[in-house]
Design a protein around this nucleic acid. Structure first.
Lengths: 247, 247
DNA sequence: CCTTCTTGTTGAACGCGTTCAAATCGGCGC
DNA sequence: GCGCCGATTTGAACGCGTTCAACAAGAAGG
C-alpha cells in the first residue's frame, strides 16, 4: 500500500536506490507536461498520457495519486526554473526595485509556455480541499521556498527594513506575486503584454509603499496593517498546528 | 435549440409567460441548493438532484447548462438575501465604518449556511474559462449589482470623497469583500469566528485608509494606486469590449 | 530450483457529468 | 375529431477520472 508516492519530488529521496520505478515515473511526468503544454489540461486525458508514455492507466495512478498531482509536479518544476533564472540578477543587482522587477519578470517568463493550461492550475488551487491549495500541507515546501526567494530579494538589497517588516514582508510579496499570476492567467492580450505592464506598474507602487513604511509618522499605520496580515497568515489558528511555526 | 437558458435569473423575463417550465426550473434549483447545503457540492450528483426533484437527468440539463450553472443561481440567490439583510441598516446608519461593518457582517451571515459547499464555488470561480469566473461576461450582472451596493455604502455615509475616489472605490471594496469571502472559505475555526474577527479588523483598517486618502499630502500616492487598480479592472483591454464601458 | 516478499503493472469496471435522438405534451388552426 | 409545431421530457450512451483485484518481475534466502 505504500507505493513511491511518499516522495513527491524526484530529487528528494536518497538518490541511490534508482529503482526501476523512477524511470517510469519520470517518463509519465515528462509526457504529461508535454501534452499539457500542447493541448491544455482538460483536453489531455489520463488515458492519453498513459498511452503516450507507454504504460497502462493504472500504472500512472501508481505514481501520481491523481491528475491534479501532476500539476503539483509542474509547480515544483517551474519554481526551480524560476530560481535558476533569478540567481544571476540577485547576485549582481542591489536596487530593490530592480531586484523585484527582475524576479517578477522571470516568473512570467518561466510560466509563459504553460499559459494555455494554467487556468486549471488556479482553479484547483483555490479549492480548500485540494492538495494544490497554496495553503495546504502538501504544498507547504514549495510555498516556503518561494517565500524565501522574496526574503532574499529584500535582504540582498540596499534597503534597510525594521525587524517586524522583515518578518512579514516576504509573505506579503509572495501573496502579491500570486496576484500577478492570477492576473496573468486571465490575461488574453497578445503576448500577455498587459500582464507585464501591470506587473511593472505595480512593482513600482509596491517598492514605493515599502519605502513609505520606513517613515516614522506612518509606522503605527503600517504596524496595524502587519498585524492584520499576520492574522490572515496563520489560518490553522486555534487548532494548534506546530508545522507552520518554524522559520 | 433555444431553450429557457437565455433567462438566467428567474425575475428577469417578462413575468407574464410563466410557462410550465418555470415551475420545473424552480423545483430543480430548490432541490439542488438544499442538497448542496446538506451534503456539499461534490457529493451531490446530478442524478440525485434529478431524482429528488422528480425529473430525469436530461431535464435538469434542459434548464441548467451544467452543474456549475447551478452555482451561478446560488450566487444570485445569496446576493439578493444579502441586499435584503443590508437594506435597513443602510437606510439608518451614516457612519462609514458602521455601514461597511454591517454590510460585511451581513455577507458572512448570509453565506454561512453554505460554508460546506462554498469551497467549490471559488474553485470554479477561479477558472478563467468558467462562466462563474467573477470577471466573465455571464457573471457581470451580479458583479455590477454587488459593486453598486458598495457604492451605496459610500454615498450614504457622512464621508465626502473626491470624484476619482468615488469612481474606483466601489470596485476596490468589492475586491476586498471577495478577499474576505476567500478567507472565510478556508476558515475551519468553530463558527468561522476567525473570519468575523479578521473582517472586523480589516474593515477598520480599510476605513482608516480611506480617510487617509483625503489628506492632501498623500493624494499623489493614492492617485497612483487608483491608476494601477484601474489598469487591473478593464481586463478585456485593447480588444475593445464596449459592454464594460457603461455605468 | 522453489518459496516469499516487495515492487511494479495491468485492464476491466464503477460512478460521475454530460449529450442527444427520440418520445411526449400542449395549444392552435382546421 | 385531426394535424402540426414548438416546448418539454426521457433514458440510454459516451468519455472521463479513478479504483482495485489480480498478475508479473525481481530480489533474497534456503
Amino acid at each position: 500500500m505504500d507505493g513511491p508516492l511518499t516522495a513527491t519530488a524526484p530529487a528528494v529521496d536518497g538518490g541511490k536506490k534508482s529503482r526501476k520505478g523512477e524511470q517510469t515515473r519520470a517518463q509519465i511526468l515528462e509526457t504529461a507536461l508535454t501534452l499539457f503544454r500542447e493541448r491544455g489540461y482538460e483536453d489531455t486525458t489520463m488515458r492519453a498520457i498513459a498511452e503516450a508514455a507507454g504504460v497502462s492507466v493504472g500504472n500512472a495512478y501508481y505514481y501520481f495519486r491523481s491528475k491534479e498531482h501532476l500539476i503539483q509536479a509542474f509547480y515544483a518544476r517551474t519554481h526551480e526554473e524560476h530560481l535558476e533564472a533569478c540567481r544571476e540578477v540577485l547576485a549582481r543587482e542591489v536596487g530593490l526595485r530592480d531586484r523585484l522587477l527582475a524576479v517578477m519578470r522571470a516568473k512570467l517568463d518561466t510560466i509563459m509556455p504553460y499559459h494555455r493550461f494554467s487556468g486549471i492550475l488556479f482553479k484547483t488551487a483555490a479549492d480548500p480541499e485540494s492538495p494544490l491549495n497554496p495553503f495546504s500541507e502538501e504544498s507547504l515546501p514549495v510555498r516556503q521556498q518561494s517565500t524565501a526567494l522574496f526574503a532574499e530579494v529584500l535582504e540582498g538589497s540596499n534597503v534597510r527594513l525594521s525587524a517586524d517588516m522583515m518578518a512579514e514582508l516576504p509573505n506579503l510579496l509572495w501573496t502579491y506575486h500570486m496576484g500577478i499570476v492570477l492576473f496573468w492567467i486571465h490575461d488574453r492580450s497578445p503576448g500577455c503584454a498587459r500582464s507585464y505592464r501591470f506587473m511593472e506598474q505595480s512593482v513600482k507602487l509596491v517598492v514605493r509603499l515599502i519605502s513609505l513604511a520606513q517613515i516614522p509618522v506612518l509606522r503605527p499605520l503600517f504596524r496595524e496593517i502587519l498585524k492584520v496580515v499576520a492574522e490572515l497568515r496563520n489560518r490553522e489558528g486555534t487548532e494548534g498546528n506546530p508545522s507552520t511555526m518554524g522559520t
